[in-house]
Simulated scan of single mutants.
Amino acid sequence: MSKGLQIAEPPRRRQSGAGEASTERNKSVEFTKFDNVAEDEKVQFNKRVTRRVADGYEILAIRTRRKVPDLLAEALSLLEEKHGKV
């Protein structure tokens, strides 16, 4: 028979009295309303690319001190100039 994995025991659960004290503390804190407004309508862009392409965009973003979405937008405009708009 195998002995199984030799790992440490999980941490012990906190006592219920400790949890009540932290909730009382959280009730006294006031939160401000989230007021961040997006400039434009934005969507998430998930496409698979090679690691080389992803690293290239990250390095270019670091070197030019720009964000990757800005670089993608510029790449699209350059491609539209070359091949025409879609």
Rank of each mutant, 00 (worst) to 15 (best):
K47S: 12
R52D: 15
L78A: 15
R51E: 15
S28H: 07
R63D: 13
P11F: 08
V43M: 10
P10I: 02
Q44D: 07
A61E: 04
E24D: 12
N36E: 10
E41Q: 08
L71P: 00
K42D: 10
D40A: 07
R25S: 08
T64N: 13
A8D: 10
A73G: 02
E80W: 04
E9A: 11
A21L: 09
V37L: 02
V29D: 03
F34E: 07
Q15F: 05
E30M: 08
I7R: 10
L71D: 01
R66Q: 14
S22G: 03
D55E: 15
A38E: 12
T23R: 14
I59D: 14
L60R: 12
I59F: 10
T23I: 11
M1F: 02
L71Y: 01
F31Q: 09
F34M: 05
A38H: 08
E81S: 09
D35Q: 12
G17P: 00
I7C: 05
M1S: 11
L5H: 10
K27M: 12
R66V: 05
F34H: 14
L60N: 06
A21T: 04
K42A: 13
V43F: 13
E81K: 08
F31D: 03
F45Q: 00
S16N: 06
L79Q: 13
V86G: 02
I7H: 04
A18T: 11
L72T: 03
K82M: 08
A8H: 03
I62C: 06
A8G: 05
R14Y: 04
S22E: 14
R63I: 01
R52Q: 15
F34T: 09
R14S: 03
K47G: 09
E74K: 03
E20L: 04
F31S: 10
R51H: 14
Y57W: 14
E81V: 05
N46R: 13
L72M: 15
D35P: 00
I59Y: 10
I7L: 10
E74C: 01
L79F: 12
G56V: 00
D40M: 04
R66P: 00
V43G: 07
Q6Y: 01
P69W: 05
S28C: 02
V68L: 03
P11D: 13
N36H: 13
P69I: 06
S77H: 06
R65W: 05
Q44C: 02
R63E: 15
L60K: 11
